[in-house]
Structure formats: C-alpha cells, structure tokens
C-alpha cells in the first residue's frame, strides 16, 4: 500500500473514528455535568444572557479594545480564511459531497489560493505575537503550540500540493490528507474543541452575568 492509498483509506477512517468518539465523549461529558447551584435571587431572567453572550464577545470590550484589537482582527482573518479554504475549494467540496451527499458552488482556485496565503500569514503573525509577548509566552503550553501546528500543517501541505512544490503531487496530497487526519485526531483532546464549546461557554458566561444584572 502506498502512502496516498494509506492516507485516503485507513488513515482517514481511523482519524474520523477517533474524532467522533472523542468529540461526543467530551461534549456530553461536559454538557451533562451537574451545574453549580446559585442560591442568590436573580436580578433578571438569565436566559437572554445566553444570546447576549454570543454577540458580546464578537468584538472587543471597549476599555480593552486598543490592546486586543490586533488579536481579534488576526483571529477573524484566519478563521474566515479557513472557512473559505475548507468549504469553498472544489476538491474539498467533492470530499464533503462524497461523505454527506451535499454540495455547493466552489470559488475559483485563484481566489482560494489568495485567501490561503492571507490565512497562513495571519496564523504566523499570531504565533509571533504569542512568542513576543512575555505574558502570553509564559501562559502558553504544549496544547497551544500543537493546536497551532495541526491547524497550519494542512494549510501548508495543501498549498504545496496545489502548487506542486517540494515533492511529487501524490506525495504532497498524501501528506496533506495525513495532516488532516492528525488534526482530526487531536481535535477533541485539545483547544480545537472550542469550535464546539465556544457557544456553550459564551451562553453560560452570558447567563451568569445576566442573572447578576451585569454586562456580559
């Protein structure tokens, strides 16, 4: 079995299996936990805070805006970039269509390539920022760096495969698929789980603050 056949077959199958087991394990394991009882009298109904919380964290809180705005913008740049690259590049749509039977129009290759480049630059800038700031460097752990690595690697290998730079196409495509497999395997066990948890986390925080009658 050559590397590409391994990547397209057993590697992705194992990765998807681990991804599903791990994701549902962590999601239900956390969401089904018993909440801490709050014996105080609520200032107002808490439920609205669940929605306010989603909105409030979309943009920096004004007093801190000047200090965190760069991180927000870079974060938006690479998140939107990843959405474009992952969901609007034709080979990726074919992958999804093959798995789930749904498809949608693709963006031109040149557009996706350009967005991929911007995404990569934003991710590199955020890593440099993390390393340059003594506080973020101090509080960063293996999870932060490895999560960055498994996010960047599929992007880099994918762009190399498209450009056919560095190795033969089938090798680059295999490395790309293997890097995706690594991302899927790491996903449930590291900080990538924020993709699922951020909604619950913002809702919980928003409800706590709403109940207390404070700003989300």
């Amino acid at each position: 079995m050559d590397l590409l056949t391994f990547a397209r077959g057993p590697a992705l199958q194992a990765a998807f299996t681990i991804f599903l087991i791990g994701t549902f394990w962590r999601l239900l394991g956390v969401l089904l936990l018993r909440r801490k009882l709050d014996h105080s009298e609520p200032r107002q109904p808490a439920l609205a805070g669940a929605f306010k919380g989603q909105i409030a964290h979309l943009w920096p809180y004004q007093p801190f805006a000047s200090r965190v705005m760069a991180s927000y913008l870079l974060g938006y740049a690479f998140h939107i970039g990843l959405v474009v690259v992952i969901f609007f590049y034709l080979p990726h749509i074919l992958f999804i269509q093959d798995l789930f039977g749904v498809s949608w129009p693709a963006l031109p290759h040149a557009v996706v390539n350009a967005v991929g480049g911007i995404t990569l630059m934003a991710l590199v800038a955020l890593l440099v920022k993390r390393l340059m700031n003594p506080v973020t460097r101090l509080i960063s752990n293996f999870d932060d760096y490895f999560t960055w690595f498994v996010t960047v690697t599929p992007l880099v290998t994918g762009m190399l495969a498209v450009a056919q730079v560095g190795a033969r196409y089938e090798t680059l495509l295999a490395l790309h698929l293997l890097s995706v497999a690594l991302l899927l395997i790491w996903f449930p066990f590291g900080k990538l789980m924020h993709a699922f948890f951020f909604v619950a986390a913002r809702a919980t925080t928003g409800m706590i603050f709403e109940r207390r009658g404070t700003h989300s």
Binding site: Q13, P91, H92, L94, D98, L99, L177
Partner: peptide, 12 residues
C-alpha cells in the same frame, strides 16, 4: 475524485 476518502463506512 482523487480528493475524496476511500472506505469511510457510514456504519463505522
């Protein structure tokens, strides 16, 4: 297509 995965079984 080359970009699709092989043998990801729905049952699995």
């Amino acid at each position: 297509p080359l970009s699709t995965a092989e043998s990801i079984a729905g049952g699995g």
